[in-house]
Design a protein around this nucleic acid. Structure first.
Lengths: 147, 147
DNA sequence: GACACATAGTTCAACGTCGAACTATAACGT
DNA sequence: ACGTTATAGTTCGACGTTGAACTATGTGTC
């Protein structure tokens, strides 16, 4: 290589590897054969509330509508969510958690509670708190510039 | 939710979104229908040198051997790499860049040069330099703890 | 030397994701 | 009202990735 990697690329490179390793960790501890996107979606519904539309979910995670359709179909087949037509919009649908869905999410949360305790233990909150504003800013700038 | 998200999860959450947005950006500017893993692999071969084995590549990116086989087959089909048996190990293979592969990588580098200039411009190197040690440390700890 | 174990690579099914094409409904402009 | 444009959702084919099963070769041990 003619020149060293600019620091910006180094940062995105580290971020990519961290994301991959963190997701792999998460996948290994999820119960009931749930996969990462399943947990992510269930967790989102608990956090922001039931009754969202698929397109809301797609925007929240910045994935395509087709990807959401796919995951919702699997969750519905397992009885973890229920999908109803939107009474106010003939095109829309609304996604609701079933009791089984809430229970599955609770089991995930319990399984995930100390996922990073080996890392958080020695470091404490400090460096994470310190890094968060920059990461949030970076994410917002990337998000804003997205077509 | 019963308790607030610990800051550790917030950090990994931001990192996940940043990675997704950054990869989407990269994918949009790559030339010749090259996809992100293709560029990543070609770039790696230029940076660390030709003649690596597939299993070396798998370890470098922490992906499975099967994933490497897949990408290498596509790159070889396009004439961007050449794969030869390892003369010292009857099981092994070695991956070499073709001139076309080097040229394609150069075109990628040119296309990618100012990928993040809109973000780097206003911020400068400062916050990236500041964040890098923490990210490196985090990556190394995750990597080390990997089974 | 023979047998056990480890390693390199391939193959396969499953999954998530994308982009593009498609249908259906809404909102708007004239 | 009508036609245009925007939006919600589905479907399809392509791709990367995983995990597991498999073949082939190397390494070591008795």
């Amino acid at each position: 290589m003619t020149t060293a990697d600019p620091v910006v690329f180094a940062v995105f490179n580290e971020i990519g590897i961290i994301d991959q390793l963190a997701q792999a960790r998460l996948a290994k501890v999820l119960p009931d054969g749930l996969l990462v996107p399943h947990f992510t979606l269930l967790n989102h519904l608990v956090r922001v509330g039931d009754g969202r539309s698929p397109v809301d979910i797609a925007r929240a995670f910045q994935i395509t509508k087709g990807a959401v359709t796919n995951t919702l179909q699997r969750l519905e087949a397992r009885g973890l969510v229920q999908i109803a037509p939107d009474p106010d919009d003939g095109r829309g649908k609304r996604v609701f958690l079933t009791p089984a869905g809430r229970a599955a999410r609770e089991r995930c949360i319990a399984a995930v509670a100390d996922l990073f305790s080996d890392i958080h233990g020695p470091l404490g909150d400090g460096p994470f708190v310190a890094a968060l504003p920059f990461l949030r800013d970076l994410r917002q700038r990337l998000d804003k510039a997205r077509d």
